[in-house]
């Protein structure tokens, strides 16, 4: 099927930057967070806390730019969930992929995410990550709770929410990294997220979507 492949410019520079930047921050936050939780000793509690706080606040600020980007560019449409072909995608990953079948929903410029991805990324970007950021921010602001009128909050419950979020993100990370290997080659999706150019099967691509100089990549 390799002969049918063509390249489209799927991920803009900001998108790619945001993806990797956020990935790096999440990895650092997971490592330092689990150290603060007492799982292992790497940076030392003191430094782990400071790095965790710094990166956490940086993430919060950077996320605001992402939200701005998502709405001003109309990219938010990519996250609108749909049930169309949902079953087909689930069936593909559960069965078809082992049979060498084609992906039922190939990537397109205006539909980067398949129905399953839409659902997962929507939950991630609109629920899990904000919950994690909010709980983290509150955790960070523990000393100001009384001033903020939040004296009723329980650190134990907040820590529980933050830990549940951390585990959820780690589960996502494991699955997400694995899923990147399900392209037509192991690193096809990873490469696309680095260069912006995704190789997809020909057919539904419009002429204007084609790269002007497809040679620049390889």
């Amino acid at each position: 099927m390799a002969e049918n492949l063509t390249q489209i410019y799927l991920y803009t520079r900001y998108e790619r930057f945001w993806h990797w930047f956020q990935a790096a921050m999440i990895v650092v936050l997971l490592i330092t967070g689990f150290e603060v939780h007492g799982l292992f000793r790497l940076l030392g509690f003191d430094l782990a806390v400071r790095v965790h706080n710094f990166v956490g606040i940086a993430w919060l600020i950077a996320f605001a730019f992402f939200v701005f980007w998502v709405f001003t560019t109309g990219e938010w449409r990519q996250y609108v969930p749909t049930t169309q072909k949902m079953f087909a995608v689930v069936r593909y990953y559960a069965y078809g992929i082992f049979r060498g079948e084609a992906h039922p929903v190939p990537k397109r410029k205006e539909a980067k995410h398949n129905p399953l991805q839409r659902l997962v990324y929507l939950m991630l970007a609109a629920t899990l990550l904000p919950v994690q950021m909010l709980s983290g921010f509150l955790y960070w602001g523990y000393n100001s709770w009384a001033d903020w009128g939040l004296g009723w909050l329980s650190l134990e419950v907040l820590a529980l929410v933050h830990m549940a979020g951390a585990f959820s993100i780690l589960v996502f990370l494991v699955t997400h990294v694995y899923m990147t290997t399900t392209g037509h080659t192991i690193f096809a999706h990873t490469r696309a997220m680095i260069t912006g150019w995704e190789e997809i099967e020909e057919g539904e691509i419009q002429d204007w979507e084609r790269p002007v100089k497809p040679t620049c990549e390889t």
Binding site: H37, V49, A159, M163
Partner: peptide, 19 residues
């Protein structure tokens, strides 16, 4: 609750089970 000292056991167990 003191970070680094205290933990809620079941959420940790559940979390690691999920991972």
């Amino acid at each position: 609750y003191m970070p680094g000292r205290d933990r809620t056991g079941w959420i940790d167990s559940l979390g690691w089970l999920a991972v």
